[in-house]
Design a protein around this nucleic acid. Structure first.
Length: 520
RNA sequence: CGGGGCGUGGCGCAGCCUGGUAGCGCAUCUGCUUUGGGAGCAGAGGGUCGCGUGUUCGAAUCACGCCGCCCCGACCA
């Protein structure tokens, strides 16, 4: 068997990054395009990753005091209008429901004109309005605060340009919505959840990120401040992997979310919202994938250890299978990342070599291959997906069975750690902080890439000082960057306020450092 | 939605300029051989060439319209 791809690799390599990304999504069996424009079918392996993400993040969300609930998919158009009137620029492309019945007219199934809705319904693009409406009824007293709500849901945004996982018309996410008595408490919540995202991304997805504050122009419409975590993909571009917004009293005022304080005065709540989506899976792919396909961090791999029996249609197959079954059940009694190890014994009736490569492409962290020789010697032969090859050859390891079972959890942890370290080295090593003027930035990133579809040369990020201008001055900065296809990702948190030099845009004294990058 | 590219069996492509009724590699199925490894040989199945209209005796091939995908831009998680 041979793949019609260079050097036996499944993906065609990362030199054409967009093509490579699509190849990994396909080869790893994660998702495919659907008949509906811009909407994807998430296949079992891809959805399995999402389920692991959900499970871990949900626990963290609950541990920080939030409760899950569910709000309707349909939002009255007037709710959106209300928000739009208070939040300039909040004009997302949305799907709108206008009828409630189909009718066969002239042989064509179409909306029945008699079933037109009095008020159109919007398929939720985000739920601030409908949740805020409920909050206005739920919050009466300072004793009701803080109100800490989360929901796991799908949302729809009629995006012009879509890419599997990174931007789809419909996507899955969680959205947290909270109401607080004062700004201090709400801001603490905003930063707390940002840090939940940061830690989750780093320790579970093995995807290092920089947490920071967005510039005024990149704020969520209506937010007082927006924070993000930004991850560096293998092509050097930044991916906004999660956001957390402090909304001040803007939404509370628009939706009448207020409470009586201890003095009996009616007071506006301070609200927050925060979310991460299936985009995280795109981030994982572009962070950890290699020329052979996906590499999944063990913490989110639907199957952490896959056992491939070397069956040959011979009498000893029974012994091999029995040995594998015993190994599988022994391994699944072990614990890694606070859960039972997820083991799969692959008994599908295909060639074992094909099975191996299927799991390699999907990114199973550990692939065990058991043949008669292993059975006879009480051995386990395995491959680490994070260190699959030695040069061009596949590297396999042998170990006594009981030792392997005993050390399996450590092995998974080691893989998790190594994937993180690899990504962390790339991130840290490609943030350039020695550039002190705009010409240097332009020079570093070079001219904007042409209209070809090549991935282009790897460029990291630039970290430099600026004076945090506002209004027209900020617009000018944005335009200047846009010409180089650049944007300000965020102003990293926890900056030391040592000598920052001059703003590379205005020449004034810099007040903080920002990250500049090309982005998704 | 603007610019560019593309749409031919599951995947990757050739054919299209110079219309004549579909081909290659991989994958799939069957048989035999092979077996610590992304196997070999032989045979087989699978495509109304994105959709529609037009031109033509005849359209994958030409024209027009539409849809979808990819890249760039605008927009965004």
């Amino acid at each position: 068997m041979q793949r019609a791809l260079s050097e036996h690799r499944a993906t065609g390599g990362r030199s054409n990054f967009p093509n490579w990304y699509q190849a990994v999504v396909r080869e790893a069996d994660m998702a495919e395009n659907s008949p509906v424009r811009g909407s994807m079918i998430i296949k079992p392996w891809g959805y399995g990753v999402w389920e692991q993400i959900q499970k871990d993040l949900d626990r963290r969300i609950k541990e920080t005091g939030h409760e899950n609930c569910y709000f309707p998919l349909f939002i009255p158009l007037s709710f959106i209008a209300k928000e739009a009137s208070h939040v300039e620029g909040f004009a997302k492309e949305m799907a709108i429901v206008t009828h409630h019945r189909l009718k066969n007219i002239d042989g064509k199934l179409q909306p029945d004109p008699d079933s037109k809705l009095e008020e159109p319904l919007v398929v939720r693009p985000t739920s601030e309005t409908i949740i805020g409406d409920a909050f206005s009824r739920w919050v009466k007293s300072h004793r009701d605060l803080p109100l800490l709500i989360n929901q796991w849901a799908n949302v729809v945004r009629w995006e012009m340009r879509t890419r599997l996982f990174l931007r789809t018309a419909e996507f899955l996410w969680q959205e947290g919505h909270t109401a607080h008595a004062d700004a201090e408490d709400a801001m603490a919540e905003t930063l707390r959840m940002l840090d939940v995202y940061r830690d989750f991304s780093e320790s579970v997805l093995a995807m290092p990120v920089i947490a920071g504050e967005k510039s005024a122009n990149e704020r969520f419409p209506g937010a007082v401040s927006t924070f993000s975590i930004e991850a560096m993909m293998q092509d050097g571009k930044a991916l906004q992997a999660g956001t957390s917004h402090y909304l001040g009293t803007h939404f509370a005022e628009a939706q009448n979310i207020r409470f009586q304080n201890e003095a009996g005065e009616h007071t506006w709540c301070h609200t927050t919202s925060w979310g991460v989506s299936t985009r995280l899976i795109g981030g994982v792919i572009m962070t950890h994938g290699d020329d052979d396909g996906l590499r999944l961090p063990p913490a989110i791999a639907p199957k952490q250890i896959v056992i491939v029996p070397m069956l040959r249609g011979k009498p000893e197959d029974g012994d091999v299978l029995g040995y594998c079954q015993a190994l599988a059940s022994a391994l699944s009694r072990e614990t890694a990342f606070n859960e039972r190890i997820r083991v799969q014994l692959d008994t599908k009736d295909i060639k074992s070599a094909d099975k191996r490569w299927n799991w390699v492409r999907r990114g199973a962290p550990v692939i065990i291959e058991i043949g008669p020789r292993d059975v006879a010697n009480g051995q386990v032969t395995f491959m680490r997906r994070d260190q699959l090859r030695d040069g061009d050859k596949v590297k396999s390891h042998g170990m006594p069975r009981d030792q392997f079972v005993g050390e399996a959890a450590q092995l998974l942890t080691a893989i998790q750690t190594r994937l993180y370290a690899e990504a962390k080295t790339r991130l840290d090593g490609n943030i350039h902080s020695g550039i002190s003027d705009f010409a240097g930035v332009a020079d570093y990133f070079g001219a904007a890439a042409g209209d070809d579809d090549e991935g282009g040369e790897f460029k990291g990020w630039v970290r430099t000082g600026w004076s945090n201008p506002s209004g027209a001055a900020l617009d000018a900065v944005e335009q200047k960057l846009k010409q180089l296809k650049l944007s300000i990702r965020n102003a990293p948190l926890g900056q030391s306020h040592a000598s920052l030099g001059k703003c590379i845009f205005t020449g004034e004294a810099a007040t903080q450092e920002i990250l500049i990058a090309r982005s998704y």
